Amino acid sequence: MFHHSKELQYEVRVEEPDPEFAKMLQQAIGGVEGEMRVALQYMFQAFAVPKKKHQFRTMLMETAAEELGHIEMLATAVAKNLEGASEKDRDRAREDPIIATMMDSGQPRQALSAGLHAMPVDSNGVPFSGNYVVASGNMAADMYANVMAESTGRLLATRLWEMTDDPGMKDMLSYLIARDTMHQNQWRVVLEECFEEPMPIPGSFPQEEENQKYNYAFMSTFCGESEDPEQPWTQGESPDGKGEFSFLSEQPGGGKPDLEKVIEEMYNEVN
């Protein structure tokens, strides 16, 4: 169950409306690094948490709901940048020929389809895809995915922070960057404190069933023999503490990829 408040999670101020920056902000809404991704990612991960692990479900759902609030903030920022921009502001942005091209061909749908408001798309106008969402059902795997999602999200927010001189936009982005810092640490705590052996994933697979010659070997794909570069990933103990890294100078090889037959029903004739 969700409850909605009329108040934004954090104040959104735009002192100098900028239609170009509104387009950039769309990446933080519907892009692969955006808030729609993490909101749905944490929500669907929570749906898969069993009853006995209810504390993780609660944490995931709390964070998912927080990310929904971030979408609302960013959508408000997009609208304020678009609706508040004067004709003079829009003409000034067009003085740069590259920006003018972007404005002319980048997202006319912000006006035509959304009436100068935000849309569930990225900065190129590509619709948000559910394929961005990682919810594997394996909590350890999902936590690694969450750290990555928050890392790229924080990277995007810092880049946006550098792209604007508007004090209100910098203030909003400073808040979002801070929350990304918290969430990165939050997911790392789950990994480090709640899983005795988080690697390799899944931990329930019997590791003795792996090919023991290759499970901790860095494999060179150069043609011919090559020397061990003597790097941390080619020698020494592996991070999971279950093996020793080694170096293989060549791939094992396994015959030619010749197909025995063509499936007739697929009409895959090779003429």
Rank of each mutant, 00 (worst) to 15 (best):
M1P: 05
H4R: 11
Y10A: 15
P17I: 10
P19A: 12
A22Y: 03
L25K: 07
I29V: 10
G31Y: 09
G34R: 02
R37P: 01
R37A: 03
V38Y: 01
A48E: 12
A48M: 14
P50M: 02
P50N: 03
K52H: 10
Q55E: 13
R57V: 02
L60I: 02
E67C: 09
G69V: 09
G69C: 11
L74Q: 08
T76S: 04
K80Q: 01
E83C: 08
A85Q: 06
E87N: 09
R92P: 01
E95C: 06
D96C: 08
T101V: 00
Q107S: 06
R109P: 00
A111S: 10
A118R: 03
P120K: 06
D122E: 11
S129H: 12
N131T: 06
A135M: 02
G137P: 01
A141P: 00
A141D: 01
M143P: 00
A145V: 09
A145C: 12
A145W: 08
V147K: 08
S151L: 13
S151W: 11
T152Q: 15
G153T: 00
R159A: 15
R159Q: 15
W161I: 08
M163K: 14
T164R: 01
D165Y: 01
P167E: 12
M169Q: 09
K170M: 11
L173M: 09
S174R: 10
S174K: 09
I177H: 12
M182L: 13
Q184H: 03
E193I: 02
P198T: 02
P200L: 07
I201G: 00
P202S: 13
F205E: 12
E208V: 11
E209S: 05
E209R: 07
N211K: 06
N211V: 08
Y214M: 13
A217Y: 03
A217G: 02
F218N: 03
M219Y: 01
T221L: 06
T221C: 03
E225S: 13
E225G: 10
S226R: 13
P229N: 13
G236N: 02
E237N: 08
S238T: 15
P239R: 03
D240M: 10
S246K: 09
L248Q: 02
P252Y: 01
D258Q: 08
D258S: 05
L259Y: 13
L259R: 13
K261G: 12
K261L: 14
I263P: 05
E264N: 14
E265V: 09
M266T: 15
E269T: 14
E269F: 14
V270I: 15
